[in-house]
Design a protein around this nucleic acid. Structure first.
Lengths: 334, 334
DNA sequence: CTGAAAGCGCTTACAG
DNA sequence: CTGAAAGCGCTTACAG
């Protein structure tokens, strides 16, 4: 940077290269400019180390170059060793990498931070918002949608507002998993559910119910996707119904918790009890025995979320809902 | 929002409440205003749903209310199931929660994204930057420091620039871990190292070397903190030196990988080989056997990083380096 | 292709 | 306590 305290501005560059500020601006924004002017401006920019002031730019363009991924979760789950969020972010990043948009992650655990984020978005601090892992009829989606800022969500949004969404076939995946248990001869299949205020939790339970259908009474224990909830649920199942010969857990983490309890209980997996998870986190290949699970393309969700949002920001039409497919990965636990 | 397409501005509120824009501004910024004016303004704000335009604000205040946490990592590690980053973020969030600053996470995996982030920061898009998990003499720290934007880093920064840092006593923690192995009778102790271009990797190796000292020849296998590198390193150790009776892995993930290989090899832990990790990730309590490890206060690092940066932004003096202590947690693997 | 000028929506001395 | 006015640093019609 040249001497002096102040950062150089358009004015600095214009003076130094002998053109008007408008011409400098055109060079920066890749608009038609005479080659000689362009060269002079580019040299001046390099010499003084000019970087455009983003606030000034945003003020007139109404664009910030920032896209927010908002996770309305208490830190408990975002920061559990669930791999959902990291993989989602990875997918989003891939899609954004070629764009001129910078991904910005915002955590909305507390009420205060939710307010702050809502105001941030409405204040035009970001060009658009991706919502992930909504619970129930989260007011955030409605508030943002109403404000007119582009919003997309993973999983369909409960409530009155229309927000374009990207999800996976939770119900079909769960059904396939349980059908696999049935077809391998299991007759007393329990499920450990995810939270029933989330689409993923609700749909995976529905898939289980679809599959067991008339063949047996449903055996259901509630969980919340975390490992500890899986442990607690498995203990309850063992107490209440020792005849269980298979468990479908709605997340791999819960399956891992269940596995832990089964081992302590002296039950062999899969000999005594078969076990299927959902997610296919990395660690599913490292449990003993390795976990059969329903693989979902989390990075694909991220990519689609980002591309849908970019379209929305560009004013292009988007599909109201995209559903990606899941795949049963059979390993050793069934 | 009132009818019309445009979002309301200060002007809108001023007109509606019968005061000047300056007075509205003062109300918004909690400056002295006559109670009656304040009431009128607040009512008008509520009625029209006014939210200040952040870009306009930043342009004059030179503050954005955004603080960046920059992770100069390929997604490989940030998104491994290492728990370092999530816990760091958690700590940072705690500290920032009461401030009027919004945390924004930026991933600098690719060269392109590093450039974008550097320009973002310099363009004044954020008030300050926290750097985490630097490798080698990362040019990003120098570039940011030179630009004059407030920067802090976790672990001390290699290279010519002075960046205030917050780290843990990696060396002391590693030394304690290995001394624990020695004092429990182990005589042939190997280490699986972290990357040697990172402070944490280098210092933990030094701690190991401190402890084994003259009592035995060092037995060193290189890793990079990931589980797969731990597996590979353990295989090499087993091949080259079957007499090993203990391993200090510089991360829990590598310890987990090592454990996997030891089990496949038929080695009992801790009977045949004792194993210590570093980090104390949640999962260290779920391995079979549960893992003895060096616990480090990752959320504490996050909190201190944030508070140091806030001081820097406020123009207050900060300590050049803060070092937090670690603690050996003895479980079943030793 | 280029420049002068207006304007984006705020904050902040400066007077009063 | 309050208002008129300048200014933050850009972009963008509008003329030429």
């Amino acid at each position: 940077m040249a001497r002096g305290d102040r950062r150089p501005t358009l004015e600095t560059v214009a003076a130094r290269s002998g053109v008007s500020r408008a011409t400098v601006s055109r060079v920066i924004n890749d608009q038609p400019v005479a080659p000689s002017s362009r060269r002079a401006v580019e040299r001046a920019i390099a010499e003084v180390g000019y970087v455009p002031n983003q606030a000034a730019r945003s003020l007139v363009t109404h664009r910030t170059g920032l896209i927010a991924l908002v996770l309305p979760e208490s830190s408990t789950r975002v920061f559990s060793d669930d791999q959902f969020f990291p993989r989602l972010i990875q997918g989003v990043s891939q899609e954004l990498d070629d764009e001129d948009e910078q991904l910005v992650l915002m955590l909305a655990g507390s009420e205060a931070s939710r307010d702050r984020i809502e105001r941030s978005a409405v204040a035009g601090r970001v060009d658009g918002v991706m919502l992930a892992s909504l619970h129930g009829t989260d007011p955030l989606s409605a508030a943002l949608a109403k404000s007119g800022i582009p919003v997309v969500s993973n999983e369909r949004v409960l409530g009155p507002v229309e927000v374009p969404s990207v999800g996976v076939d939770n119900r079909g995946g769960a059904r396939t998993a349980v059908e696999h248990l049935i077809s391998s001869g299991r007759r007393r299949i329990a499920t450990i559910t995810g939270p029933q205020d989330m689409i993923a939790g609700m749909d995976r339970l529905d898939g289980y119910l679809d599959a067991v259908g008339g063949s047996q009474e449903p055996v259901v224990a509630a969980g919340d996707f975390t490992r500890v909830s899986g442990e607690a649920a498995m203990k309850r199942l063992l107490d209440e119904d020792p005849g269980i010969d298979a468990v479908f857990a709605a997340s791999d983490l819960m399956a891992e918790g269940a596995l832990h309890v089964l081992r302590q209980n002296g039950s062999r997996v899969p000999d005594d009890v078969a076990l299927v998870g959902f997610d296919d986190i990395t660690r599913a290949r490292y449990t003993e025995p390795r976990l059969t699970t329903v693989s979902q393309p989390i990075d694909g969700i991220g990519r689609h979320l980002a591309s849908q949002l970019l379209r929305l920001i560009a004013g292009e039409p988007v599909e109201p809902a995209i559903t990606l497919t899941t795949e049963l990965v059979v390993r050793e636990s069934t």
